Amino acid sequence: MAFGVEKQFLALLSIRKIPMVGEKTYIQLRNMGVPKIQTIQEMTPDTMQRILGANGMTI
């Protein structure tokens, strides 16, 4: 894999592939209409923190 394509590669993956996303977080994100990592990549850090608290910043 070439350098610099990680973001594109990850964007296509399910949010289940994120190590810190357990069952509760997965359900919460899916209920909000977040199926893929790309959607999270497009969110601001502030939005992630509002939704998921401190873990939102880590994710």
Rank of each mutant, 00 (worst) to 15 (best):
residue 1 M to I: 11
residue 2 A to S: 10
residue 2 A to C: 04
residue 2 A to F: 07
residue 3 F to M: 10
residue 3 F to G: 07
residue 5 V to T: 04
residue 6 E to D: 08
residue 8 Q to K: 08
residue 8 Q to N: 08
residue 9 F to L: 07
residue 9 F to M: 01
residue 10 L to A: 06
residue 11 A to E: 08
residue 11 A to D: 02
residue 11 A to N: 02
residue 12 L to C: 06
residue 12 L to S: 10
residue 12 L to M: 06
residue 13 L to Y: 05
residue 14 S to T: 14
residue 15 I to T: 05
residue 15 I to L: 06
residue 16 R to C: 06
residue 17 K to S: 10
residue 17 K to T: 12
residue 17 K to H: 05
residue 17 K to I: 04
residue 19 P to L: 03
residue 19 P to K: 13
residue 20 M to I: 10
residue 20 M to Q: 06
residue 21 V to Y: 03
residue 21 V to L: 09
residue 22 G to I: 12
residue 22 G to F: 07
residue 23 E to W: 02
residue 23 E to F: 11
residue 24 K to N: 11
residue 25 T to W: 01
residue 26 Y to P: 01
residue 27 I to E: 15
residue 27 I to F: 15
residue 27 I to M: 15
residue 28 Q to P: 00
residue 28 Q to W: 00
residue 28 Q to C: 05
residue 29 L to E: 03
residue 29 L to C: 07
residue 29 L to P: 05
residue 30 R to E: 15
residue 30 R to H: 13
residue 30 R to D: 08
residue 32 M to F: 08
residue 34 V to C: 07
residue 35 P to N: 13
residue 35 P to I: 11
residue 35 P to L: 14
residue 36 K to G: 05
residue 36 K to A: 12
residue 36 K to N: 14
residue 36 K to W: 02
residue 37 I to P: 03
residue 39 T to D: 15
residue 39 T to P: 01
residue 40 I to E: 00
residue 40 I to C: 07
residue 40 I to G: 01
residue 42 E to K: 14
residue 42 E to V: 05
residue 43 M to A: 06
residue 43 M to R: 09
residue 43 M to D: 00
residue 43 M to V: 01
residue 44 T to A: 09
residue 45 P to C: 07
residue 46 D to Q: 14
residue 46 D to N: 14
residue 46 D to M: 11
residue 47 T to L: 12
residue 47 T to H: 05
residue 49 Q to V: 12
residue 49 Q to C: 07
residue 49 Q to Y: 09
residue 50 R to Q: 15
residue 50 R to T: 12
residue 50 R to L: 09
residue 51 I to T: 12
residue 53 G to F: 07
residue 53 G to V: 05
residue 53 G to Q: 03
residue 54 A to S: 14
residue 54 A to T: 13
residue 55 N to F: 05
residue 55 N to V: 13
residue 56 G to W: 02
residue 57 M to F: 11
residue 57 M to N: 09
residue 57 M to T: 13
residue 57 M to E: 11
residue 58 T to I: 14
residue 58 T to Y: 11
residue 58 T to C: 09
